[in-house]
Amino acid sequence: MTNLNAIDPAAVAEEARIENDDVVMAKSAIILRRFLRNKTAVAGLVLFLALTVFSFAGGFFSAWDKETIDPFNIGMPPSAEHLLGTSQAGIDLYALTVEGTRISILIGLVVGLVSVLIAAVYGCTMAYFGGKVDKVMLFVLEALIMMPALLVVAVATSGGGDGLRENVPSWLLLIIVLLVFSWMGSARLIRSLAMSLMQRDFVKAARYMGVPARRIVWRHLVPNIGSLLVLDITRGVTGAVLAEVAFSFVGIGIKVPDVSLGVLINQATSQVQTFPWMFWVPLVVMFLLTGSLAMMNDGLRDAFDPGSGSVGRARRKGK
């Protein structure tokens, strides 16, 4: 135990430096640094944040809101009074777009993130425990896949469950229903990936250190399928936005007075010729939204994946 107990001034100084935290960098700082090296991704993030800010603060820049009808301007193209024009009902399109973007981002983010999270934890747990646990959980998963999602959404948002509908807004209901049916595919994929990770030595090492099972799943398995998760999250967000559009299109998603980009697009499709601005404005916003996520994709993967080329230049290598 010689050099463990030795005390010398250099060691004390070193200790002070360690306490002050200039040596050990937080993992988040490292990830952020790696993310910032990808310019496209940063641009995507900026765009995404701008859209989010727009969806929350945009309402303050206009005198109109999504419910006030302007009887003098019905179905008017963009003008000084109404920046983006008005709908057939005489509602300001700018106000509708702000509101719709917020709901769409909310649905997309919540469904994308939470469903991937559920899938990751569910899939990794199945792989880690194996045996009976795996069998039962796999059965539940298969049963859910068989369920006709469309019908359940239709019932939940329009037909039965009246009491439920009175208490929760339609967007929240849609989120819950989308969540329940969106994670199974990824969970199965993640299960097989995690099973191959289980064979790796570092999982064995953690087990032999006596690390509890849930921590191994959370700290070793989930991050190591991170590249896939990141891709799944952005894909999931896009997918949820599109699903919302699709459900709203067939008339079972978001209900008026709630509004979303999908509802706006749906309302405008029949009159693209006469009221083009009503179709193109929400469509461009949706394109910006999904596009910004796609731009972030690569950067996020690089940031989380140590095997990527994002090591930065001019760093010393070796000893």
Binding site: I30, R200, F202, M209
Partner: peptide, 17 residues
């Protein structure tokens, strides 16, 4: 009791600093 593995690359979680 602790263990050192044969393959130093496989034994370290690539996502851990």
């Amino acid at each position: 009791l602790q263990m050192v593995f044969q393959d130093p690359t496989g034994a370290l979680d690539p996502r851990f600093t």
